[in-house]
């Protein structure tokens, strides 16, 4: 079963046709990077996979099921099976760190307070934060900590699929490296399937097992880093073989 399958997806944002016939499949255990230029509709695609936007045309299935329709309970149940890390964290600013991570757990309305507390503390430790950070408000956190807390919240419901929008944007190279390492470690440990959007080549090279290139309103190429870079296209040349790109690629071709 495919974790995510997108078939013939077309998206129109206002007057602009962003996607035309996008096809993409995500297998269990994949760590896929979705790359593309600014404005190529990466985030729009991610939002549709998450279900924030219903597809205009075409079909998106997550865990083999469509995201929309079939009643609130079915939709909610399906959405609990994946976690999303938004670009700016999207922490609830009125809650402290503890309550932010506890929120999805409490929404289940079956776990008692003691268990929720223990689970939150466990997630906090998993993203390498300290117990005392639990009481901080989002406004008091640094950029790297916001991402970690948001990751802990995304992992709260033990998802099988993790979707990340620009996981390392706005982090300095050092923080960015350690965040990538954390995602990779958790991904292996929790057996996650990961789809992430990034235009940072270092992040892509360090994290992804497969790369999908979104350009010219469609998926240009999908495959391992080596396969994708074989494909001859101005965007791919630009993205992977610029001065910056050569530095990030493990084996220069």
């Amino acid at each position: 079963m495919k974790i995510v399958s997108i078939r013939d997806l077309s998206t129109r944002l206002g007057e602009v046709l962003v996607h035309r016939g996008v096809n993409l499949e995500l297998e269990r255990g994949d760590v896929m990077a979705l790359v593309g230029g600014s404005g190529s509709g990466k985030t729009a695609l991610l939002n549709q996979i998450v279900g924030l936007r219903a597809p205009d045309q075409g079909e998106i299935r997550v865990f083999g099921q469509p995201l929309h329709g079939g009643g609130r309970a079915r939709e909610a149940g399906l959405r609990r099976r994946f976690g999303v890390l938004f670009q700016h964290g999207a922490l609830f600013s009125a809650f402290n760190v503890f309550d932010n991570i506890a929120f999805p757990l409490r929404e289940l309305r079956v776990l008692d307070a003691g268990l929720v507390h223990d689970l939150v503390m466990l997630k906090l430790a998993m993203v390498e934060l300290l117990p005392r950070h639990a009481r901080l408000m989002p406004a008091e956190l640094s950029g790297g900590m916001v991402k970690r807390v948001a990751l802990a919240r995304a992992l709260a419901l033990e998802p099988e699929l993790l979707l990340l929008d620009e996981p390392t944007a706005g982090l300095d190279p050092d923080r960015s490296d350690s965040f990538v390492r954390l995602i990779r470690m958790l991904g292996e440990e929790l057996d996650l399937t990961v789809l992430f959007v990034s235009h940072d080549l270092d992040t892509v090279a360090a994290l992804a097992t497969r790369v999908a290139v979104l350009a010219e309103q469609r998926i240009l190429a999908v495959g391992s880093m080596a396969e994708v870079t074989q494909y001859d296209h101005p965007f791919i040349r630009n993205f992977f073989f610029s001065e910056r790109g050569r530095r990030a690629l493990p084996t220069p071709t």
Binding site: A125, L130, P131, R132, E189
Partner: peptide
């Protein structure tokens, strides 16, 4: 056991 070890590690941190 690895999962339990992870929980034990989180417990050891707790000096709340």
């Amino acid at each position: 056991l690895r999962i339990f070890e992870r929980i034990a590690a989180a417990d050891r941190q707790r000096a709340f």
